[in-house]
Design a protein around this nucleic acid. Structure first.
Lengths: 241, 241
DNA sequence: CGACTACTTGACAAGGATCAAAGTTGGTGG
DNA sequence: CCACCAACTTTGATCCTTGTCAAGTAGTCG
């Protein structure tokens, strides 16, 4: 970010980084956590509405059921950093602090399951298994955030985009979808704010990758990975543009 | 980071971001955690030696007793991102993963207390209080890392340095030291790798701040904050250079 | 007092930002 | 069904911050 940018505008989005805490296969221990989620109420949030904002009392933890949410923070002059994209299955609002430190905004019409933290903590205080699940879930978030930190601190524009696509591709693979076809439901601006770039740089870089045969783009939101090996090397610093 | 930088060299350091989990005032609940720390063995690590490296089995959690440690990750071409600096009282190695995802290196001769994770987890499984302490501790790390992410993604060089100094200043204040006098035991290279800049930019930016009367520098490692109000505004995006 | 290592400073280049404008896409209403 | 409009995206030209390359300075240790 070279200078001032006070004109950050609006959004629409998707894409995500950290895996959520409650994978049926693992959680089968006793079923506590799923039970709690099942008890939670469901809330519908329209596109661009906030699930919560910075400073809100942390009353609930939210699990994305459908749609997509982005977590972000802002500087006083309006510059925005998107911390992560939360997709179905992902949880937002974890953390032991009593107030929310970020903003969470739906990027498309979204449904979330709401779990009251009071109940969750009460359960955790009785059942260490649940407390440890919280620990595991937030550990995963921390890992993903550190990876992102490496991205922003050390990688150039191409590398950031490549890393971004690779992560989304992996998420696809993890949920059984085609890892070669990545859907970008979020705006270019969202991608830019996630990667610490400008919208123009994102667009140009994507075009460049297209020219180089690394990817193809359909109707703006669908990216087809043509050479994920090279993308991977690009992201890991093992290849020059 | 504009291009390739394959020539990253060596270090020496200090500086830190996240507060540790075990503040006597809060932990007085039952004393479990302190008890565990007291049981742990102490290990001495000389400057530049690693406490652990990426991929190591996560056998212990470490609490810095004296000295300083940096956590970092690297890209395959050698670019290094320092995640955080751990100072006395800070804990490194938390996280539910079974292997270390980062490298932890002493930047000066350091002593750490080692706590076997096996014992810690066993205790946590019996006592939810302990499990929740883990959750709280790692929640704090996540918050600090997100703040850092905002820094790398959105702030320019001056702003990054200002934010860095402000954080160190606050840490001083938190431990009762003079917030206006910040010691930088780490190398300029370490600062650069922490902030996603080059050593030259760090040096130049510090010099510029000095010329502007924001800071004074004694014997390279001591920074005197002359105008912390303006530094704060700089860091928060509320001021132009 | 040399040889290191770390830091600073300068000149130049390059990646990405900014400014500007044109091309797409999707929704609305006639 | 199509014209129009707003929002989003792409592309181009130019500027600026920061990286790169290259000296030069300053402490440290033997």
């Amino acid at each position: 970010m070279l200078s001032t940018s006070r004109d950050r505008v609006r959004r629409t989005e998707v894409g995500k980084i950290n895996r959520d805490a409650h994978q049926p296969t693992t959680v089968r221990h006793r079923g506590h956590v799923e039970q709690h989620w099942a008890d939670g109420t469901v809330r519908r949030i329209e596109a661009k509405a906030h699930v919560f904002t910075q400073g809100d009392a942390k009353t609930h933890v939210y699990k994305v059921a459908s749609g997509a949410v982005c977590l972000y923070t802002v500087l006083t002059d309006g510059r925005r950093q998107i911390i992560e994209f939360a997709l179905p299955g992902d949880v937002v609002g974890l953390g032991a602090a009593s107030v929310q430190a970020c903003n969470a905004q739906a990027i498309v019409s979204t449904q979330v399951q709401c779990l009251p933290v009071a109940a969750l903590l009460k359960a955790a205080k009785k059942d260490p298994e649940i407390a440890l699940k919280l620990y595991e879930a937030i550990s995963r978030e921390l890992l993903a955030t550190r990876e992102h930190l490496l991205c922003l601190g050390q990688r150039g524009a191409c590398e950031r985009l490549a890393a971004f696509l690779v992560v989304l591709s992996r998420r696809n693979a993890a949920r059984g979808a085609d890892p070669r076809i990545v859907k970008l439901p979020m705006t270019r601006l969202d991608v830019a704010d996630f990667l610490g770039l400008t919208i123009e740089t994102v667009s140009r870089t994507l075009s460049k990758m297209k020219r180089q045969g690394l990817i193809e783009i359909d109707q703006i939101t669908i990216v087809r990975l043509k050479d994920d090996g090279k993308l991977l090397r690009l992201a890991d610093g093992g290849a020059r543009v």
